[in-house]
Design a protein around this nucleic acid. Structure first.
Lengths: 335, 335
DNA sequence: TCTATTAAGTAAACCGGTATACCTATAATT
DNA sequence: AATTATAGGTATACCGGTTTACTTAATAGA
């Protein structure tokens, strides 16, 4: 049994050449009588024929496939982005191949290679700092690429980002005004991601300018809760109005646990602010103030930039900076 | 400038026929002198040639692409599953096309169609109740498919599920032993998903057998927090040791909010148990006991079943039931 | 010395579409 | 009546690989 019906089958059954069927498929009805058109239509309906995108791609060069490489799909920020990309892509008849790099260059490169082999039309990537170099070496000159949060100098490179520097800077303004005196920045290695670096700088610049006392605690996935605890809790004995500023979502969870024994001091003696909208930040008591990035919008925007580039619509300046919002809740409500 | 180097370019530069290059690419070195082999190798290295997976797929029929359709990629259970699939797939040189159905049959079908057109080798899907019918109608006899949590009667259909019935049954044993006397089951309509029905039965069977007093509260997305509150809180006046058993993750969030005013009664007068590992359940105070499904493992298992089927390795019986674990935390810690 | 075998390699068909150039019969124009 | 235009349609090359059947020269065996 033939499992798959092809354009040849349709042509034969409808009694026309495959050229005509191809014309029909592409809406080129000019050279076609209404009768022929109807016969083809019926044959397709009857056989359930669906043209092979693979065969199509072979001459088109376009697969209508987008390569999406993010750090980790289980991260809520990342998956909201992906969902944004997906929704926009679907409306424009594109599909997504998705890969998690675990923030490692080698994985990014591996995915880029296999996605190119697969024929993706372009890329959307949340890159690690050295990605640009690796990308240049690969020399895929004709594949457009959109970066998240990491402007690049690549000719064909577009980007979308959020105003990390300003958002953190302004949050610091707010917190200082509220009356917090001593700050602890908790961040993952700022040299790995542009985002982290920008947030770090927004924080440090503001602190230095206003001559506020601060510590920086660099942590990673493997840093234990206890270690974080030991770096923060003792400060509460010697300092007034401490505020902990956590620079990404997965670290916030750790810090929240580390503060277990001193949570009752919030928001007066201890403030806490994090990044991104996690389900629990609003449910916690006290609820946690966070800087919210418009992740879904970022995804949508990235997809629109890429697809516009692919289809050579250049309606608007491509690169965009989206604004973060501060969701002020109880954890920083010092009066 | 030719942007993409093809097998013909390699053949020409290396001074051999493309047949020979193709043999090289596929590791068929039998008909090849060491000298030729080396020349091809060098040419490929120098030109950065990468064979087009699209062209390959056209005769192979295999694209090494898996179609993954889940309810919503932003749901933590779903994205853990996807990550599990991804990791296993990558090791086996498969890539993923991912789509979110929003739990709607029409979207599932739309994705299935476009993924088939794209040439995916098989599917992994978290199906809605009527999916099976829609799938049968499409009649893609040769596309293997793996279902989550919904055994099917489709010849080519494989599945992975968790032991919902047993997990709930055993959790009830534990809670009863702890000393809870009166139970309230909060569930979404059990007739809609197999998963829900199994959990419901595990609960009811145990209660009936041990002749424990229980209520069942059926809620949905639109049920208000107040309504849930009004059904549970009054019980605390008349009953001793009430335990609320919530049967899925999004309902747990609602119930947790509904219990806001009586949370301090936990775990003594009021117990609370939920489903799935939500980030906040461990962070809440008191922390919430949940039954945890091995989502990542489920994804991995699904991928292994599918890929085994595709590569016709039939090492082990394909369908699998994975075990849930109870993560006992403070909310049920009655002694 | 003559035949059989083998090593090394290639021409060409094919996968399922798209696109170009070409064909033919009829209608319209001069 | 002869020429041109047009409607309707097809043959064929091509995209970039894989695979089958075939060729040729060198070597081994009898």
């Amino acid at each position: 049994m033939r499992s798959k019906v092809t354009i040849n089958d349709v042509a034969q059954i409808a009694g026309v050449s495959k050229t005509t069927v191809s014309f029909y498929l592409n809406g080129k009805y000019a050279k076609m009588s209404d009768d022929t058109k109807k016969r083809i239509e019926e044959t397709i309906e009857k056989t359930g024929f669906q043209p092979s995108a693979v065969a199509r791609s072979l001459n088109n060069k376009s697969t209508h496939l987008l390569g999406v490489i993010i750090g980790d799909i289980t991260n809520s920020f990342a998956n909201q982005i992906v969902r944004g990309i997906e929704d926009y892509a679907r409306l424009n008849k594109y599909q997504l191949i998705v890969g998690s790099s675990d923030y490692k260059l080698e994985n990014e490169i591996q995915y880029v290679k296999s996605m190119v082999a697969m024929g993706v039309d372009g890329f959307i990537i949340q890159p690690t700092v050295n990605f640009e170099e690796g990308w240049q070496k690969l020399n895929y000159k004709d594949k457009p690429i959109v970066y998240f949060d990491s402007p690049n100098r690549n000719t064909k490179g577009f980007w979308v980002k959020t105003n990390n520097y300003e958002a953190v800077y302004e949050a610091c303004d707010l917190l200082i005004e509220k009356g917090y005196k001593k700050f602890v920045l908790v961040t993952a290695d700022p040299e790995v991601l542009t985002t982290r670096l920008e947030r770090y700088r927004g924080f440090v610049d503001n602190m230095n300018l206003k001559q506020i006392n601060y510590d920086v605690l660099v942590a990673d996935m493997n840093t234990s809760i206890e270690e974080i605890e030991s770096k923060i809790v003792p400060l509460l004995e010697t300092e007034e109005n401490v505020c902990v500023f956590v620079c990404n979502n997965w670290l916030l969870t750790k810090v929240y646990q580390a503060l277990k024994d001193v949570r009752h001091l919030m928001p007066e003696k201890l403030g806490l602010i994090g990044f991104d909208s996690l389900e629990w930040t609003e449910l916690a008591s006290p609820s946690i103030t966070t800087i919210i990035q418009p992740a879904y919008e970022e995804g949508k925007t990235a997809a629109s930039i890429l697809i516009d580039a692919l289809e050579e619509r250049n309606n608007e300046p491509p690169n965009q900076i989206l604004k973060c919002n501060i969701n002020e809740l109880e954890s920083t409500n010092l009066k």
